[in-house]
Each structure stands twice: as structure tokens, then as C-alpha cells.
Design a protein around this nucleic acid. Structure first.
Lengths: 230, 230
DNA sequence: ATTGTCAGATTGACTGACGATCGTGTAGAA
DNA sequence: TTCTACACGATCGTCAGTCAATCTGACAAT
């Protein structure tokens, strides 16, 4: 853990990339919205080269889709895509949990349980932001203990991709209690050093979250907002 | 399936991107090799803007790593990373198989079995290229029938990432017979419409391939080639 | 031998420019 | 009035050139 002390001046490109990503996942840009590079340029005060490179990265992450000769658009999340994302999230999170059960240190296990207890003691009055932040910490600890950089990167992408849906599903009344109960099963499996059971518990947890989110998505907004291109 | 007939002139950027990716996965560039954008420019006859955007995409895929102020390098695959990639591949392929068992049409099931029979009837004298091509077709059919664009994209990335290892493990004498037998278990599970068994069979297949590849990697080249930077 | 300095090479970023392409609105014809 | 064709604007794709910051390696000085 000899963390390098050298400071790296964050390149302009990375600032644009992170700013744009944050703006998209926080909903400051509506899905389907057109983002001409001109407006991105003077929004971030950067040149076209920088903006275009940043857009390429977000395109690879799936957050924006670039139509030829028309430019970048905020990606639209259809119910089918959402279901697919949850499927992938399920197996990746299951793998992360399984790896955590295998490789995590005692300190990391204790830390994960601490985060869970933080979540469990929140009343139902907690704000969406708080809940998302706690779940974020949960994932951070989980992925750190899983010792697998690839599953961490891919899961990060997927969590960014369906941030809006997670916010809605977390705000569902009564969902918090189920989340706490499902995660307890994960924690118990981890403490019993049972990777297989951890795998199953994690995947099932995501499946439940997907059911809630997709049900909300189907009933609450039967007709999506922006135009599905082509 | 009304595929649009209109041809879109592939942008220069995409040509550079695909050419560079092909050059890396085919081993025309050694791992750890430095790729100054100057040489990429007159190698592809493109301007710096185009090359840099293409490099961004490959960076997001993990095929190249860009060191600040030093430029892009062909990514180096450590044994630990290889093991992590195989872990992720295992669950993603398992999910793809499970989805295939759930959603594929009868035609797709027959097609998958045809590809498998093609692989099974090859004698041990088949060339690496042929075997890789057949496995490629197997994956294409599998992913098409899985009805999940995300698992397809991520699996594609991972397969590109460890192409070299796959080539070595496929060339291992006797491995072909085991591969055929393991895939038969997958096919049988699919034909029995048993998603859970398909999941397990796929994951185990990848695990076996990982064991072979990592064993070869450990014994055949105990000290990697290029310098691990920093 | 260690340190300091300098030149060359390379990246990061910006700017201006040009043609190609898409969408749209308008003018003209039926 | 309705429909078609064309022109126009907006935007993208690409390029070339410039400048500053940084790294590398060699060479000189202590």
C-alpha cells in the first residue's frame, strides 16, 4: 500500500470528462438531449479537441451515443436495456461478493458490516442522496476487498449507467427494509466464509432491486420522454 | 431484421481505431511498446486529432494505457490481471449462456450446435487460426441468442483483452478434446432448456480454460517481457 | 560519482479553417 | 391548398499549424 506521493496535475480532458459524466448521471441533462460540441466547449471552457476526446470516453461507457454527422446525445435508457443492465449487474456484483468472501481481510469485513449497520439504522426518513451515498460506500468497500480491478471498472460503469433507476427504486417506500434484509444475508454469508452463498445472495439482491425499478419504470412512465432515434 | 442497405462511409477515426485494435490483439505490437502519436499518424495517414480520439477508445477498452506526458503504451497483461479477467469472463459467459437457454430460437440453437460439431470434427491438426475462428463464431451465435447487448459488448472487450492467452491455451495439446467435451455439456443443458445448468457449465468451461492458460503463463514465461512501469 | 544544465522529443491543448452531411424551412409548381 | 425541390444554416469530421509544459538522455561541472 505504498501510495505514490507524486501529484499529477489533472489534465483538462479529465476534468471535462468527469464534469460531463457527473452532469449526465445527476440528471442535469435530460436523456435524449443533444449536446453539440460547441455548447460543451464554452460550457467547460475547453477546445473542441478536448471535448471530443472526452465524449469518446463517455461513448465507450455508454453514457452518450454519437450519431454520425449529428453529434453526441445523452443516452436513452429503454426498459429492455435497463433489464439487460440489471442482469449484468447481478452477475458482476455476485462475482464481487464471492471474491470478497474469499479475499477480504478481517478489517475489510468489519468495515463492510459497519456500512451496513449505518444503512440499517437509518429510519425511513433518510433522503435519497444519503441512501445513495451509503450504498456507494458499500460498493467501494466491497470492490476494494474483491481484489479484481476489472469487475470494479465494469460495475462502476453499470452503476453510472442506471443511476436514475437506482434513485427511483431506493426511494420506493418499504424498499429500504428489504434492501437491509437482503444485504444482511450477504454479510452473513461473507462472515461464514461461504463464497457460493454470497454469490447467490448478491445476485438475488440485484434481482429484487431490478424487479422494483422495472416495475416503477413500467407503471410510472409508460411512454418515455425523448424520441427513440430511428 | 430489415438491415439497412445504405452504406455509411466508415469515418477515418473508426478505421484507425479498428486497425490499431487489430494490430494490438494480433500481437503486431509487443506489450509495453510505446506508441507515440507521431508514428501512429503516418502509420495510418491520419491527423493527430483522429489518432488521439481512437487512442482514447482503446484506452477505455483497456488495450492501451496512457501515461501522462508520455503517451500511449500497449497494455501489459500481468498474471494477476489475467486471472481477474478470466473470473469476469466466467460470470459474463455464464450469463450469456443462461440467457441463450432462455431466449434463443430453435434456429439459433441449431446453429450453435452446428458450430460445435464443426469444432468437434476438427482433428488435433487444426491450426490456431481456424480454432480461434470457430470459437469466434460460437461466441457470435451465443451472444446473438442471448438478447443482451451489454453482456455482448463487455465480453467482446474481454475477449480482445486476453487474445494472446486464448491462442496459447487453445494450442495446448489435448485441450481441444476437453473444450469439445465441456461445450457439449453446455449444449446439452441448453437443449434441455435448463438455464441454471447452462450457467454452471459455461462458468466451469471458462474456469478450465483459465487454469490451462494461467499454468502455461506461469511456467512458460516466468519473467514477463517489458518493464512494468513505475 | 554525483549533480546541474541544456537540447531534443513528445505530449497537452488551442486555434482557425475547409468540405461534407443532415435538418429544416421556404419558394415554386401542380 | 398541398406537395415537391432547392437552398440555407447548423453541426460534424478532419486537417494543419502553433505554443507551452514535460520528459529523456547526454554532456559538462563540481
Amino acid at each position: 500500500m505504498s501510495e505514490s506521493l507524486r501529484i499529477v496535475p489533472q489534465p483538462m480532458r479529465r476534468q471535462v470528462e468527469e464534469g460531463l459524466r457527473a452532469a449526465i448521471v445527476n440528471g442535469r441533462f435530460a436523456p435524449g438531449e443533444h449536446l453539440p460540441d460547441r455548447v460543451l466547449c464554452d460550457l467547460f471552457g475547453a477546445s473542441r479537441s478536448v471535448v471530443r476526446e472526452a465524449v469518446r470516453l463517455l461513448e465507450a461507457e455508454g453514457l452518450v451515443t454519437v450519431q454520425p454527422n449529428r453529434g453526441p446525445f445523452v443516452a436513452h435508457l429503454s426498459p429492455e436495456e435497463a433489464a439487460q443492465i440489471y442482469d449484468v449487474r447481478g452477475v458482476l456484483e455476485a462475482l464481487a461478493g464471492e471474491s470478497f468472501a474469499r479475499h477480504a481481510t478481517d478489517g475489510e469485513r468489519a468495515e463492510l458490516r459497519a456500512v451496513w449497520e449505518d444503512l440499517a439504522t437509518r429510519g425511513p426518513g433518510a433522503s435519497r442522496e444519503d441512501l445513495l451515498a451509503i450504498k456507494r460506500r458499500f460498493y467501494d468497500v466491497l470492490l476494494a476487498g474483491a481484489r479484481n480491478a476489472y469487475v470494479a471498472r465494469m460495475l462502476d460503469q453499470l452503476l453510472n449507467r442506471n443511476m436514475q433507476l437506482r434513485a427511483t427504486s431506493l426511494s420506493d417506500p418499504g424498499r429500504l427494509a428489504w434492501t437491509v434484509k437482503e444485504l444482511k444475508r450477504v454479510l452473513d454469508a461473507i462472515d461464514r466464509r461461504d463464497p457460493d452463498e454470497t454469490f447467490i445472495a448478491c445476485r438475488e439482491h440485484v434481482q429484487r432491486a431490478a424487479d422494483v425499478a422495472l416495475r416503477l419504470l413500467a407503471t410510472h412512465s409508460p411512454s418515455p420522454d425523448a424520441e427513440p432515434p430511428s
